[in-house]
Amino acid sequence: MFSAARQSVLRQAQSQLRFSRPTVIPQYLAFTRLLSTLALLEQREGKLNVSSLAAVTAGTRLGGSVTGFIAGSGAKAVANEAATIQGIEKVIYVENDAYDKGLPENFAPLLVENIKKGGFTHVIAGNSAFGKNLLPRVAAMLDSQQISDIISVESEDTFVRTIYAGNAILTVQSSDAVKVITVRGTAFPAGEQGGSAEVVEGADPKAECPTEWISEDLAKSDRPDLATAGRVVSGGRGLKSKEEFDRLMPPLADALGAAIGASRAAVDSGFADNSLQVGQTGKNVAPQLYLCAGISGAIQHLAGMKDSKVIAAINKDPDAPIFQVADVGLVGDLFDKVPELTEKLKAL
C-alpha cells in the first residue's frame, strides 16, 4: 500500500515536468500523463501477426502512449506495417534473426533491456503461445507479478480476468511499478488502419540462448484462424472417429466459411489435432457463431467458447449441459443432422 501511494505521489510530481495530451478520464489525469505502454507485436517469417495487435488495443485503453515492439529478421518491414495501425505512437524494432523463433532465453533479456531503457510503466502481450511462454519470464526479471489473459482494463492499475475456467471473474489491482499483462485476443479487437507511428531501432543486448530450436510441425489449413474466426464449427466425442470427424466437419466448415475446433475428448481420442482444442487448456474463441456437434459441454470446454455471440448445438442427449448455454439447440443424431445442415447451408 505504501509503495503504491509513494508511486502515485512520484508520478504526480514528475507529471508536472512533462508535456501531456488531454485525456478524457479526469480522475486519472495524474496517472495518464506518465503512463507509457510497450505492446509486444509478433511476426512470423517477416509478416505481422495481426492477432498480436490486441496488445495495442488494450494499451490504448490505459490512456497513455503506446509503443509497439518487434524483433526478428525483417523486423523493420514489420515495424513499418505496424506503424499504420491507429493508436501506436512509436514502433521499436530490433533486426536480428536470433529472435525469429521467439525463444524466451534471449528474447526476455532483449525485452527487459528495452523496457528499462524506455521507462515503460506497462508491458502488454497477447495471450498466445509466444506471449504465455515469454512474458512471465520477463515479469520475474522485473520483479513484477504478471496479470494473465485479461478481458478488460478498468484503470491503469486495475484489470479484469477470468479464473476457474471462466467460472468466476476476478478484478485485481496491481501495486507493481511495471505492470506486465497478457490480453485475451477475443476481448480486444485489432485497431484500424490509418496511423502513422515513428519507427525507431531498439537496443539489442544479444544475450546468449542456451536453447536450440530444432523444428516445427504446424497444421496447414486454408480455413480462417481458429482464435480469430467469425464462425467456428466444433466437433466432440460424439463424432466417434477421426474418419467421421474428417468426413462431416470440414464440409460444414466450408459451407459456413468457418474455422474448425474440437473438444478435448475429440483431441484425446485422436479425431482432431491438439491445436484445434477449444477450452480452458486450449484456445479461447468468441466468434459470431459457434456451432458444435457431439459436444456435451463440460465446464472446461465452455470456458473456451461461452463468450461466443450465438451458440448452436446438435446433440442426441437432450440433457447435455451444452443446451444450457446454446441459443439454438437441436436434439438429434449428428450423423443425420450435420450432413443435412451442410446441404441446406450450401443451398442458401
Binding site: 525463444l103 509466444f130 542456451p210 536453447t211 530450436w213 523444428s215 516445427e216 482464435a227 489435432d273
Partner: peptide, 11 residues
C-alpha cells in the same frame, strides 16, 4: 504445444 501445432527444442 504451440498455436497451430508443435515445435521441438533442444536444451
Amino acid at each position: 504445444e504451440v498455436d497451430g501445432g508443435v515445435e521441438t527444442l533442444k536444451a
